[in-house]
C-alpha cells in the first residue's frame, strides 16, 4: 500500500510543493500566500531527507538543518515586513497593493 521507496516520498513532496505553488497563485491574502511559501519550503526538505535516507548520505540532512534555520529567519523578517505594509496601506490583499503599477 505504501511502498517505502524514494519515489513515494518524492511524489508526496511534489504534491506538497504543487499545492503550495497553487496557493501562491490563487490566493489573494498576503499572509496565506506566505503560509503556502512555507509549505513549499517544507516540501523541498522532505525531498532532501528522502534523498539522504535512500543514498545513505548525511549531506541532505545537514542541508535540511540549514533550511530550517533560514526559514525561521525568513518568517521573522517577512512577517515584520507584512506588519509594516499593513500599517502603511491598511490592507493585505495583493491586488490592492499595486503601488508600482502607476
Amino acid at each position: 500500500m505504501f511502498p517505502n521507496t524514494i519515489n513515494t516520498y518524492l511524489l508526496i513532496s511534489a504534491l506538497l510543493f504543487a499545492i503550495g505553488f497553487l496557493g501562491v497563485l490563487v490566493r489573494r491574502n498576503t499572509l496565506v500566500i506566505y503560509m503556502c511559501l512555507e509549505l513549499m519550503l517544507v516540501a523541498s526538505t522532505l525531498a532532501l531527507v528522502a534523498f539522504s535516507r535512500f543514498n545513505g548520505s548525511m549531506d541532505g540532512n545537514v542541508f535540511v538543518f540549514f533550511i530550517l534555520t533560514v526559514a525561521a529567519a525568513e518568517v521573522a523578517v517577512g512577517l515584520a515586513i507584512i506588519v509594516a505594509l499593513f500599517r502603511k496601506r491598511q490592507t493585505l490583499q495583493v491586488d490592492r497593493l499595486d503601488g508600482l503599477r502607476n
Binding site: 508526496i12 504534491l15 506538497l16 499545492i19 503550495g20 497553487l22 496557493g23 490563487v26 490566493r27 496565506v32 503560509m35 503556502c36 509549505l39
Partner: peptide, 10 residues
C-alpha cells in the same frame, strides 16, 4: 493526512 491538510491551507 499531510497532503489533505496542505489542501486545507489553500
Amino acid at each position: 493526512f499531510t497532503v489533505g491538510c496542505a489542501l486545507g491551507v489553500v
